[in-house]
Simulated assay, not measured.
Amino acid sequence: MPLQRRILILVSAVVVLAAIGALAVVRASSRAEEKNRVQAGGPPITRGEVSLAPGAGDRRIVFRNMAWGPHRDELATAAAGAPEGPRTASGVSCLRFHAAAGTGVCLQTDKGGVQDGYKAVVLDARLNEVATRPLAGIPTRARVSPGGHLVAWTVFVGGDSYAGTNFSTRTSLLDLRTGTYDASLEDFTIHKDGKTYRNADVNFWGVTFAADERTFYATLATGGQTHLVRGDLAARTVTTVRENLECPSLSPDGTRLVFKKRVPGLPPDAPWRLYVLDLATMAEAPLAEERSVDDQVVWTDDKTVVYSLPGDFGADLYSLPADGGGAPARLMTSALAPAFLG
């Protein structure tokens, strides 16, 4: 075979192999892009900008994405009017999250030390860190005040479930206006039954803030009982209001609290039902959810609350009328810790 023809065959072979290689790279890139877009257990998700700014476009939900895939545990957003529609992932991972008025709080794993721990990160509207505090235990609850000036979080420092009796919590408050940090609500003065109260077994959890950016409600546990307390941030006091209330959540109009309540006769590991308390009359009524809810609900407006229940990929979100009527409806699959913004 002439040398010129051999060279031509060799060059042709190299060109073909190069084309095959290029095609393989294109296909691999396409598969990677598809993998980045599709997640198991939820709608399609892509990386993009997530904002906590009020009034930034249509009403939206920002939440912890629980679907398996490259964006699991990241803060993501979806349209409030189409909660099961496409999601946008932020790249910021949180175990617990809440936001209001352009401020967010993200409780997350801290991988900066010799041994992994946890930290609370305060976020601005663009998800930039503005403050960080180490956490003494496992994150469980987080709240931002309606005006975005106050942040609270609760961690387990002993035990890992509210359902049992062998647990200890620590609840912290941070005032972003002054930088005042209260590492534990246990340092506040407790007024119980008209008297100043002290006990080594005191635990607090589940803070919810009023619109005046001073008043808050929370759960106090002591002596084997739980109590609703009303707190005064300026006076650094909490006052017991009612027994057997946990994880209260104040309605936007400030007139009602939805909470979980232990109901006698239910299983020890699933003891709660959701109730609503009218703060003017102190009358309470059950909501139309017959399953045990171990969550602090979020109000979407003055009529509806949203909460999590176990799902195939960790948790799903359900909505429910706050007047005791209607029926629960699944709002989002593979989602946790929502904040309704816009």
Rank of each mutant, 00 (worst) to 15 (best):
V306E: 00
K303N: 10
Q108A: 14
A152F: 01
R59P: 12
L228Y: 09
S93D: 00
Q108R: 14
R230D: 02
D312T: 07
G223H: 13
T140Y: 04
Q4A: 12
A79S: 15
A131S: 14
T169D: 14
P86K: 01
Q39W: 02
A329M: 07
V151N: 00
V293P: 11
A99Y: 03
W153H: 10
E246I: 00
L277K: 06
A142Q: 03
L274G: 04
A67R: 02
A125G: 07
P264K: 04
S12Q: 03
K260V: 12
G194Q: 15
H227C: 01
T46C: 01
Q4M: 08
L317H: 10
Q225W: 09
L317S: 09
T222E: 14
F204R: 07
H227V: 00
D269L: 10
G326C: 09
E34G: 11
L23A: 15
V121W: 00
R143I: 00
V15K: 02
D323Q: 14
M1G: 09
V121F: 01
D212I: 02
W272A: 05
K260F: 06
G164P: 01
Y217D: 09
A183P: 09
Y307E: 03
L309T: 09
M282T: 02
P134H: 05
R242F: 14
V62P: 02
D295E: 11
P310W: 12
A280E: 14
L8Q: 07
V15D: 01
G69M: 05
T154K: 03
T169Y: 14
R126E: 12
L245I: 15
T109P: 05
R126A: 13
F167N: 14
